[in-house]
Amino acid sequence: MTAVSQAPHVGIWMYENGGGKEIEQQLVHALAERGILASTGLNLRDARARDGGIECNGVAMEQLDAFLSYNAGQQTQYQLYLYETLNETIPTLNNYRSFALAEDKFRTAHLLNSHGICTPDYRLCHKNDMAGLRAALHDFGGKLVYKPTDGWGGVGIVKIEGEQALDMIMPFLSRTDLRYFYVERFINYDNTDFRVDVVDGEFVGCYGRKAPKDDWKTNVTSGGTVFVREANDEVIELALHATKTLGLEIAGVDLIYDREREQYVVLEVNTIPAFATPEQEQLGLMFNKAKIQAMVNLIEKTVAKKTSFQSAKVA
């Protein structure tokens, strides 16, 4: 009697705001057309782990053929802990190791620099190394940017200009429970950036962001605005190189142009880059279709690789 093979089954946790629900539906539909079932709403906040298994909303997570975690704003330590645990059993997108690496701004900058990819000059200082912090301010021309090593959307990022500003912020820094400070040279740029989306080693789209008047942060959550922007070959190659170096399957690479040194700089690598919202699509940002297609291709390839590996083990 011939065994009946089951359709591949993947799990998805997608953000819902800004058109995310509609993107999720398009992903599910495209996967179904390729014979891949998808369970949605798998927020690991609702998961329970016991007796060698993790169950989330009635789904046995380890039995999935892949899990796409695509929600930046609601990640908790509990969810990340289970995300890491799942990655030891099934493919996750992004893979947890690269996801965790890219979420750490210092480790990202350090690795990219070691592979010849330009980032802002940076320093990691021990909490009690105030002399090192002052030296960084001096070496960076009197302007530096303090950043939490994790986080997103520009939260907690502070520009420090001059010795007086540093003196004012030092008492606050000394009272925090941080173990170290990560700072970068403030780059002279035109207050716009490139966001380059990469999926499975391929360029899928680009747009620009502009900081609000009298500010310097381009993040939309900090008041930045999105505009249509084409990426040149140099920007695309840098984004592809950064993504590959970090080992990410999906990435949104932020780049700015350093006017002082006349070169492009990788500012950040995002592991959950948003799709264009309906309002942004009306402005002309039309990369969603290509990105969905690339992600479906990636999921299909990931599932096929897992199935092939399991068949080889049985044989």
Rank of each mutant, 00 (worst) to 15 (best):
P8A: 11
G11H: 03
Y15N: 07
Y15G: 15
N17G: 04
N17C: 08
G18E: 13
G18S: 12
G20K: 13
K21N: 05
I23K: 12
H29F: 13
A30H: 09
A32G: 07
A32H: 11
E33P: 00
L42H: 08
L42A: 07
D46F: 14
R50H: 09
D51H: 15
G53D: 03
C56K: 06
N57Q: 14
A60T: 12
M61D: 10
M61R: 00
Q63K: 12
D65M: 02
A66M: 04
F67R: 04
A72V: 07
G73W: 09
T76K: 12
Y78P: 04
L80M: 15
L86F: 05
T89V: 14
I90R: 02
T92I: 12
L93N: 09
Y96Q: 07
D104I: 06
R107P: 00
L112A: 11
C118L: 05
C118P: 09
P120L: 10
C125V: 14
N128W: 04
D129Y: 02
D129G: 03
L137Q: 13
L137S: 04
K143Y: 08
V145N: 07
Y146L: 15
G151N: 10
E161A: 14
G162H: 03
S174M: 08
R175C: 10
R179K: 06
Y182M: 05
Y182Q: 04
N188C: 10
Y189C: 12
D190I: 04
N191P: 01
T192L: 01
V199S: 09
V204D: 04
C206K: 11
G208V: 04
R209M: 09
R209N: 08
D214M: 06
T225P: 00
V226H: 02
V226R: 00
R229N: 04
N232H: 11
D233P: 00
D233T: 14
E234P: 00
L240E: 06
A242T: 09
L246D: 05
E249P: 00
I250Y: 03
A251S: 15
G252T: 11
D254F: 05
L255K: 08
Y257L: 07
D258C: 02
R261C: 10
Q263A: 10
V265F: 06
V266S: 06
V266W: 03
L267T: 09
V269M: 07
I272W: 00
I272N: 05
P273C: 04
F275D: 05
F275P: 06
A276F: 12
T277I: 11
M286R: 13
F287S: 14
N288H: 09
K289I: 09
I292N: 05
A294N: 10
V296L: 09
I299Y: 03
T302S: 02
V303T: 11
V303H: 03
Q310E: 14
K313S: 12
A315M: 07
A315H: 08
